[in-house]
Design a protein around this nucleic acid. Structure first.
Lengths: 233, 233
DNA sequence: CAAACCAATCTGGTTAACCAATTTTATTTG
DNA sequence: CAAATAAAATTGGTTAACCAGATTGGTTTG
């Protein structure tokens, strides 16, 4: 178990080193947007790491949108300039694992927006999905069971109804970590209350009525306890 | 070029199919959080795909936090229940590529928050970094050159000063796509104006003075043009 | 009979050889 | 000499064999 964590962090260190070396290489060679990177083989040899390590890093930077690899052709620098490139790589290297506060802070920010957008843009289909999620949540709570997951799925349904794919993606990214931390810090216990049901119903109604202001208001009320929890940990 | 896009989207289709099959398998086998998935070899055989494809998907789901693979041991379902698991996989399957509007909408939301947090939490070091980014931006604009990248790096410096690692990460994720789209839709042309310099200076001053309200105000003013651009495209 | 031990097996990770498509270079041809 | 063609080298992607550590089941031992 201990070793596992070690190897993982070791691997991460390796990745960071590769990114750093890659940045230096790009700066040194004055590569510009659209230019081709040296081949994976070349890089793995030059950096003294395995080709799969290089591939992992390239995939990661491709996810961040600053590289673009084309089969049988090469890996290219995306259409952002050298300055942005170098600056972003620095930032990526400096990225830390998200702490719980940062997660909740971001979640609240996102949800106060998605709920407004959902009220404005929701279709009938969205409404059905939210209703289903809400009912599943209700049933669990009324049976005295934990319902953290059903809770979150309701909120994800809202994000989906917001029709903003970026926020939807971001909600998906933070949700599992939210769930894990909720259970770790026993935030879920507070979720057993019947009050939660009414709050969810209120939010649902506001979205159904296409009332963005009310929707945001109700979501704010729903987050009130979370606020306190978050800032006491 | 055409083929490249095709193979990429084909690959994406393969990935989606694997995720879908994996979800069905988990549901069918009633796997719960903490349970071990069948080995990569087994899955690749069962699904009729290559092991590297399986590994790609696992990495992706690991990024979304719903799987966790441990070396020499196996891949495990994260500490989220089956319901959240299945629901999230559905959502991931349904994820679309972000459109420009969605990107700008999210950026504005994030930045109106990070600028407030930066005003509250910035250190002197943060201030120095922002100053450097601002000066680099100024120089380019005063020389009549495009400065989209320097612009964004200033905003990234703010995100970093916000001390919220989640928002910082999200800003990093959307930045390259923002840059690309800015150049595509010639939003950058509007950035040549000297007005931008003053607006940046105002934001910087507000953060320096640790005045969150003013900082948000100035950021809002800075985004005014962007708002219009965004909703006219 | 339970606890300690050990070897066979299984795991994700790594490596190296291979593939098909592309790109470059050399050759041919008008 | 330039354009067309063909062959060689290079590319990211794929595959299969291999590795070291973890797990497991049976065996031994007190």
């Amino acid at each position: 178990m201990r070793v596992d964590i070690l190897t993982k962090s070791e691997n991460r260190e390796v990745q960071k080193e590769i990114i750093s070396k890659l940045r230096d290489l790009i700066n040194y060679k004055n590569l510009e947007p659209g230019d081709k990177l040296p081949s994976e083989r070349m890089l793995s040899e030059k950096f003294g790491v395995s080709r799969s390590n290089v591939r992992e890093v390239i995939q990661k930077l491709e996810f961040f949108g600053i590289l673009k690899s084309r089969p049988q052709s090469g890996t290219f620098i995306a259409d952002i300039g050298q300055i942005a490139m170098s600056g972003m790589m620095d930032d990526i290297l400096r990225l830390e694992d998200p702490d719980f506060k940062s997660l909740v802070e971001t979640r609240i920010l996102l949800e106060l927006k998605t709920v407004r957008l959902a009220a404005l843009r929701r279709t009938d289909e969205d409404l059905t999905k939210m209703r289903q999620a809400l009912d599943a949540y209700k049933e669990k709570v009324l049976n005295g069971q934990k319902a953290v997951e059903e809770d979150l799925l309701f909120h994800l349904a809202i994000a989906q109804a917001s029709k903003n794919s970026t926020m939807n993606t971001f909600m998906l990214i933070i949700t599992p970590e939210i769930i894990t931390n909720f259970e770790k810090y026993h935030v879920c216990d507070a979720n057993l209350s019947f009050q939660g049901i009414q709050e969810h119903e209120d939010i649902y109604e506001a979205i159904k009525d296409q009332d963005p202001k009310m929707a945001k208001e109700k979501m704010k009320a729903h987050f009130k306890i979370l606020y306190q929890y978050c800032y006491n940990i």
